[in-house]
Design a protein around this nucleic acid. Structure first.
Lengths: 136, 136
DNA sequence: GTCTCTGCAAATCGTTTGCAATGCT
DNA sequence: AGCATTGCAAACGATTTGCAGAGAC
């Protein structure tokens, strides 16, 4: 997604497309590594020298409020941020700490005994080792 | 589980059964509400007047290290603690904040496209509304 | 007496907030 | 000017750590 497209996307979601916001969105869109605030900040503050972490936090919160981005809490310290996409779940490698996406379609939660419960959100995350780290 | 049984269980897991530890374990065992540190502390410090939150933290960490208890992070602030039991997942009601257990046997994670990945731990948690709160 | 357990207070760390400075139209 | 955006510094809240005092054997 190029800068013009991002700009349009932000406007469509009611967000004023400032340079920081465009760049932060671009960073999330370009490398889908479920970055933490720190990673985003470190990636961008060479280019946007005045960028502060507060702005990264503010911007991500704006994105979340406008349903552009989802917060992912893998329970290991910092929050991670994820561009909104279809139902998927996360696999986190305990060795390299990378997070992979997996399609959640196949997983049949409904077959469970949840009668009477209203499911709003299903979160699945798996810990383990990724193929790269297994090879080593 | 009565106090004698808890004492034995702690000893069997290599934990010196102090009063605080027995009481904290009893609290976890008695009300399986996936309590936070705060809830445990509030439940017990009437009875154990000198109890401190540090001790609750220390004790829970000891339990976790000795595989008596599992940390559950539902991504909403505090950690929750759960007596070790068979594979199960959590349903958290967004209205009353109660957490329910569900058996995870039925959920067939393996059928997914995770070839090459070594699965060590599968975490599933669902947000929604419980039957009680739906009725209201 | 030694060694563990406990609890206060301070430190830590990610995140949030208050507010003043800056930027945009 | 008037309003939104940004960024520093302080606040926050859950958890951890350092360490000294209490307790057990």
């Amino acid at each position: 997604m190029n800068l013009i497209e991002i700009k349009k996307k932000l406007i469509k979601h009611g967000i004023n497309p400032s340079i920081s916001r465009i760049k932060i969105y671009e960073s999330l869109d370009k490398n889908r590594i479920h970055p933490t605030v720190d990673k985003i900040y470190n990636e961008l503050h060479g280019e946007l020298i005045t960028l502060s972490k507060t702005t990264v936090y503010n911007t991500l919160k704006t994105f979340v409020n406008h349903n552009l981005v989802k917060v992912v809490n893998l329970g290991e310290g910092e929050l991670r941020y994820d561009i909104m996409q279809d139902d998927h779940f996360h696999f986190r490698c305990k060795t390299c700490d990378d997070v992979y996406d997996f399609n959640a379609k196949e997983i049949d939660i409904e077959s469970s005994n949840l009668t009477g419960f209203k499911i709003e959100e299903v979160n699945i995350y798996i810990n383990g080792q990724c193929p790269k780290c297994i090879k080593k």
